[in-house]
């Protein structure tokens, strides 16, 4: 054993010696390739660094500072004061602003997901599916300003919707002037405008479901509702989770539609949401620290909600 070892050892050593230049060459090649890889990645990494990482760190720093904008030399570190200012009972940030944000996002998500599911299911049974998908996708292509203004006109006391209500002998509704109705009214528009993208994803999801499952269900005598409830919906869950998460994030970050439709988050702050308040604090009032602290709180909320959604979907077995 020892002799073998002894006789084998010089061979092994010589083999090792022979393979050393090869290994070195290979590792040099890997390093060269690695460098080339990083070089190719550099533009995107640089973009990512400049436009995402650095601003994120700057926003975190600003959330702990007092800064009026304009002059970068006048940033004063104040610790967590911005957070204590916005997260107390006297502050309007928690109520009504954060409450509005969550209600708005929830309404928009529920309406958009439910609406897109119904539309996707209906399109699946129609002829000219491409045309219908195109039709529902149109609002996604249109600008938020155009959509907001058209709906604003329809919501007016003398607008189309109130005209129809009056024709049915129903009193006019102050869709954008009644604080109780204004937020749901804007949430409906947000949902309507985002249905198109969700429909595309869901119709793709429906098409990916194996037809044989439906055939088996038909043979077993399942009706349309049972098929939808027991086959379509469970097998569509990955697409639904994606739609849910993206719609939820869009709802929580919504800003443009609010500013177009209600201009100042009114009436009585009833449509004031976190993203709009951040804009006001930073660009109107010069309270960049407060705005950044609000951004951090909103980020945390979106992060937690997304984690919960992923956790729920995983528990339901999507990852299997």
């Amino acid at each position: 054993m020892t002799g073998t070892y002894l006789t084998a050892a010089p061979e092994a050593v010589s083999e090792l010696n022979a393979s050393e230049p090869r290994t070195r060459t290979r590792s040099r090649r890997f390093r060269r390739e690695g460098r080339a890889g990083y070089l190719f990645l550099a533009p995107s990494l640089l973009f990512f660094l400049i436009f995402l990482i650095l601003p994120s760190f700057f926003a975190i720093f600003l959330s702990l500072s007092k800064w009026g904008g304009y002059d970068l030399t006048q940033i004063h570190f104040i610790g967590v004061q911005n957070y204590t200012d916005i997260l107390n009972f006297d502050s309007t940030f928690v109520s009504p602003i954060l409450v509005n944000t969550l209600v708005f996002a929830a309404l928009a998500v529920v309406l958009a997901v439910a609406g897109s599911l119904v539309v996707a299911q209906c399109i699946e049974r129609l002829k000219l599916q491409g045309f219908w998908r195109f039709l529902y996708f149109l609002p996604v292509v249109a600008t938020v300003v155009a959509i907001g203004n058209v709906w604003k006109m329809m919501y007016q006391p003398s607008g189309l919707i109130n005209g129809l209500l009056n024709a049915l002998h129903i009193n006019s509704i102050g869709f954008l002037s009644d604080p109780k109705i204004a937020l749901p009214s804007v949430a409906v528009v947000q949902a309507w405008a985002s249905i198109g993208a969700a429909v595309l994803i869901l119709t793709a999801g429906i098409k990916a479901i194996d037809r044989s499952v439906y055939e088996a269900a038909e043979i077993d005598g399942a009706n349309s509702w049972k098929t939808f409830w027991s086959i379509t919906l469970p097998l569509l869950r990955p697409s639904l989770v994606f739609v849910f998460i993206t719609q939820c994030i869009a709802g929580l970050q919504s800003f443009a539609l609010i500013i177009v439709m209600t201009k100042d988050g009114g009436p009585v702050n009833s449509t004031n949401v976190a993203a709009f308040e951040m804009y006001q604090q930073a660009f109107k009032f010069g309270a960049w620290g407060t705005a950044s602290a609000m951004a951090m709180v909103l980020f945390l909320i979106i992060f937690i909600i997304t984690l919960i959604q992923l956790w729920v979907s995983r528990r339901a077995g999507d990852d299997d």
Binding site: T92, S177, D178, P179, D264, G266, P267, V268, N269
Partner: peptide, 10 residues
């Protein structure tokens, strides 16, 4: 403005 809105609207 927000306070006046509370009075005028609510």
């Amino acid at each position: 403005h927000n306070a006046l809105d509370q009075i005028l609207v609510n």
